[in-house]
């Protein structure tokens, strides 16, 4: 797997898009930090951008890479390499290069700002961890969509729909259901619904870490009770790990049964 990963990774970090992605975060980081001067606000703005943008880029890049490397995959399939290693290698190549762009693009301006010496390092670290998780999760989902759809257009369509659902529609349905069922106790429901969507979960984790759960109103208090504790934090991390592990497992399963 290492060798496939190496070639996919090299291939990607030579690509223009990785640089664009990297410079975008670099510019964003510098602008937010040096024009804002308020670290906590900068982290919140960054969070709002990361939580929407990272899944989008992950899904688009993931499907695009899968379809574009069809020739590479076919070449590899005839070589003495285990099938699952081919696909997992490519997956980690994409997810790794995207994560690197994110971590370096945001890390450099924050380091330049003197973050390493301040207390906000933990908030920032959580932001990065969440960003990397979201990259891994949505790239894995994208690979699953692509491997199940020979038709590129269809694959792209499903990938964008998935992103739209997770980032926008899910919240809409969630809010609607809160309004419709407002007469019932909804604490448990809203907590579970939040935990089931990696984007919502990431947002909640960061907001609670920043200690601005008051912004969330009444539910904020309930959330704080659960997600704010050590157990809640690790349970959320576990959910993120599961969101990552299940698509990877499905990718492995499908790749060992597909004809090329």
């Amino acid at each position: 797997m290492g060798k496939v990963l190496k070639y996919s990774f090299y291939d990607l970090i030579r690509s223009r898009w990785s640089y664009i992605y990297f410079f975008f975060y670099l510019a964003l980081g510098f602008v937010l930090l040096f024009l804002n001067n308020d670290l906590s606000k900068a982290v919140i703005t960054l969070m709002n951008i990361i939580i929407v943008l990272v899944p989008l880029i992950g899904t688009i890049f993931g499907t695009m890479y899968y379809y574009n490397s069809k020739e590479f995959t076919e070449l590899l399939l005839a070589q003495p390499i285990k099938r699952s290693h081919i696909f997992l290698g490519q997956y980690f190549g994409v997810a790794g290069s995207l994560s690197l762009s994110l971590a370096l693009g945001l890390g450099i301006p924050f380091a330049a700002y003197g973050l390493l010496k301040s207390n906000a390092i933990f908030d920032f670290a959580l932001l990065l961890v969440v960003g990397i998780f979201l990259t891994l999760i949505f790239t894995a989902l994208a690979f699953n969509i692509a491997i199940h759809n020979e038709n590129k257009i269809k694959g792209f369509g499903y990938a964008v729909l998935l992103w739209l659902f997770m980032a926008v529609i899910y919240d809409g349905i969630f809010l609607l259901s809160l309004i419709i069922f407002e007469e019932y106790p909804l604490d448990t429901f809203s907590m579970i619904a939040t935990a089931l969507n990696p984007i919502d979960l990431s947002r909640t984790l960061i907001l609670l870490k920043l200690d601005i759960s008051a912004l969330l109103g009444y539910t904020g208090a309930v959330f704080k009770k659960f997600f704010g504790t050590q157990i809640g934090f690790w349970a959320s991390m576990l959910v993120l790990v599961l969101w990552n592990a299940i698509p990877i497992f499905l990718l492995k399963y499908k790749s060992s049964r597909k004809d090329f």
């Binding site: 590479f72 070449l75 390499i81």
Partner: peptide, 22 residues
């Protein structure tokens, strides 16, 4: 079945020469 090491003993020339273009 499920093996892959045996491909070390095979050289294959695919019908359509599709290579990573970059």
């Amino acid at each position: 079945k499920k093996g892959w090491k045996y491909r070390k003993q095979i050289d294959y020339l695919p019908q359509i020469a599709n290579f990573p273009g970059n």
